[in-house]
């Protein structure tokens, strides 16, 4: 008996439980002072970063997609649409920057659905903490991923010959606007992640929504070449405003109207989907 136990111990690395230590640990379990909303959210943000550290594969989507998109569209359409890939790149890159980052917002819903699936959120929801903090914290981590994706696109772009007149500060301003918009869009995915609950359905839904939304915009071509019904859609598509604003920033201009529209849409998205997500989160 003793021998088999010892063998099992060696095999699975499990140790015996010491009763005295257990009692000491239990009696030392008094609650410290309760932290605030911001501290809770940052702790969850830390968790997202830890997950990047342990599951670096998840960054593959964030890095491979942008590189693939940039290379593919530049060389596929560049010659036909703008005379040369390099010329087209000046027009395309701000749009690709928007498209890849908006695409990645889907992962917010995917991660959430996976967490719920695995029972993480039952633990979180039973804790005496600021209730939205797991959601807000996850998004803080996601903003880091968005920024990383932007960096990838820009690096590839510069290598291929992207030379924006707006220089570093123009591009940075564009990236900040993209991050704000994507932070807001991610709340839609949070609501979807909380509602459908299966990671696969989130993935399927994202394709149906994001492909039309990002392609039916001014990302790739001038909308003036499109049929009028498509133009009508493109002109109300928020992606169009974001791409115009970022393109202007990269050209060293400030498109007041587009930036304002993007900011209003962002605030509206958070104002609508934030509370809806919280109701859904509490009521499950």
């Amino acid at each position: 008996m003793t021998t088999t136990q010892a063998a099992a111990t060696a095999e699975d690395g499990i140790e015996e439980i010491s009763h005295d230590r257990l009692l000491a640990a239990l009696s030392a379990g008094a609650a410290p002072k309760r932290p605030g909303a911001i501290a809770n959210s940052f702790t969850y943000g830390w968790r997202s970063l830890l997950k990047i550290k342990h599951v670096p594969e998840q960054l593959f989507d964030v890095t491979a997609f942008p590189i693939l998109f940039t290379l593919l569209f530049t060389f596929l359409f560049g010659g036909a649409l703008a005379g040369s890939p390099t010329e087209y790149l000046q027009f395309l890159l701000p749009g690709i920057l928007v498209q890849t980052t908006v695409f990645i917002t889907m992962y917010t819903g995917l991660t959430l659905a996976t967490d719920i699936d695995k029972g993480m959120f039952d633990r979180f929801r039973s804790l005496p903490i600021w209730q939205p903090s797991p959601l807000v914290g996850a998004m803080l981590g996601d903003v880091v991923r968005f920024a990383l994706a932007c960096a990838m696109v820009l690096i590839v772009g510069v290598i291929l010959g992207f030379r924006p007149p707006g220089a570093v500060q123009g591009v940075l301003a564009g990236v900040v606007l993209i991050l704000i918009f994507c932070f807001a869009v991610a709340w839609i995915w949070i609501l979807i992640g909380l509602t459908v609950r299966s990671p696969n359905s989130v993935m399927a839904l994202s394709m149906i929504v994001l492909f039309p939304l990002t392609f039916a915009s001014n990302t790739f071509v001038d909308p003036a070449t499109m049929p009028s019904w498509l133009q009508a859609f493109v002109n109300i598509n928020p992606i169009t405003y974001l791409v115009s604003a970022v393109r202007a920033f990269c050209n060293g201009e400030f498109a007041t109207y587009d930036v304002t529209v993007v900011l209003i849409i962002s605030v509206a998205l958070v104002a609508i989907f934030g509370p809806l997500s919280m109701i859904r989160y509490r009521r499950r």
Binding site: A31, P32, K33, R34, P35, A39, N40, T43, Y44, W46, R47, L50, K51, H54, V55, K118, G119, M120, D122, R123, S126, L127, P128, I129, S133
Partner: peptide, 28 residues
């Protein structure tokens, strides 16, 4: 109160220490 069991889980991707530190930080 606190809850443990088949549905309240820990994060499988994180280490034992990281899971406990995460919760301890949340408690303050």
């Amino acid at each position: 109160m606190t809850l443990a069991g088949q549905f309240a889980s820990v994060d499988e991707d994180l280490t034992g220490t990281e899971n406990l530190v995460l919760l301890a930080r949340l408690y303050g």
